[in-house]
């Protein structure tokens, strides 16, 4: 029972991480109609900026602020310089351009920071583990990730449902031309939305620093899973991204955790381990296929 609870927490934490990346991706795709493959690179920018600041200043707060600021700045610069020219073009052009941005940002980061993975310490206040479940110490840092993720989700909901900016965002997603005809600077709005998406990716990157490996190419590792989350949740829907991320996080973690023991009951040791490994790797893609079969536009489509 304690093991199940621990694994549920693990799934929740993975889901929260995925949500931060997927929220930006889905906003940009749903509202601006742009497929941004470079979302993973913004995550990398956030992680590197956070790691560099933490190493130089030793301050976790500065590292956090600097990391998300760097990612947002790079994201907005990218929107101004590259994406602005692509809104009227097809998805293929956008994919090519943002793929090019991945190569560009990876190489730029190699020249700036080198190929060696960076060391990032857990902030002293978040070190150690607490026994929220008796007998199972759980790392405080992972609990903090879960808390931050849920706060961000709530904040995004408030922003989009309750503020004037959020209203414009929703209106822009529904009918771009009408919003422009009413005198709203839609280009500025797009830059802001893209910056927000980049900021969330940067936040994920800074938080990933002490847990994952901070190195060039780290964004591509997590990008595919993030797209799976967006597709499951319904493209353009932040609510969908949250549900999709939680679902993917939990399914992936629980399959990896319990499938081998379940299969061992049926077949022999090493074979069961190998088969379970294979099935667990397929798990989230199977989930995506099933969701698409039942609800072809995802769980919470934005423009239903």
């Amino acid at each position: 029972m304690a093991l199940l609870l621990e694994q549920l927490l693990n799934g929740l934490q993975l889901g929260v991480m995925l949500f931060l990346l997927a929220a930006g991706l889905t906003l940009v795709f749903g509202i601006m109609g742009v497929i941004n493959l470079a979302q993973g690179s913004l995550y990398m920018v956030g992680a590197f900026a956070g790691a560099a600041l933490a190493a130089r200043t030793g301050s976790a707060t500065l590292s956090l602020l600097g990391g998300i600021a760097a990612a947002a700045a790079v994201g907005m610069a990218m929107e101004l310089a590259v994406l602005r020219r692509l809104y009227r073009r097809g998805h293929l052009d956008q994919v090519l351009a943002t793929f090019g941005m991945i190569l560009f940002l990876n190489q730029a980061m190699t020249m700036l920071a080198g190929r060696q993975p960076l060391f990032v310490a857990v902030p002293p206040a978040l070190e150690g583990a607490v026994e929220i479940i008796p007998g199972v110490p759980y790392p405080v840092y992972r609990l903090a990730i879960i808390a931050v993720g849920i706060l961000v989700a709530a904040g995004l909901w408030l922003l989009i449902q309750r503020t004037r900016l959020g209203m414009l965002v929703r209106a822009g997603a529904t009918n771009r031309e009408m919003v422009r005809a009413l005198g709203v600077d839609i280009r500025l709005l797009y830059t802001l939305v893209f910056g927000l998406g980049a900021l969330l990716a940067g936040l994920a990157g800074v938080m990933a620093g002490p847990v994952f490996s901070v190195q060039v190419g780290m964004g591509e590792q997590i990008l595919i899973t993030t797209f799976v989350v967006v597709v499951i949740g319904g493209i353009g829907s932040v609510r969908g991204a949250f549900a999709g991320a939680m679902l993917v996080g939990l399914v992936d973690t629980l399959l990896r955790a319990f499938l081998p023991d379940l299969l061992r009951g049926a077949i022999g040791g090493p074979d069961a381990d190998a088969l379970a490994g294979g099935l667990a790797s397929m798990g989230i893609y199977l989930l995506m296929a099933i969701v698409l079969l039942v609800r072809p536009r995802g769980l919470f489509p934005a423009h239903a």
Partner: peptide
Amino acid sequence: LGEIYTRLDQTDYAAELARIRA
């Protein structure tokens, strides 16, 4: 006691670590 093959694109090992602890 057990053999686990992790994914090459895996970044989070929490599920495997919990199994080791158990």
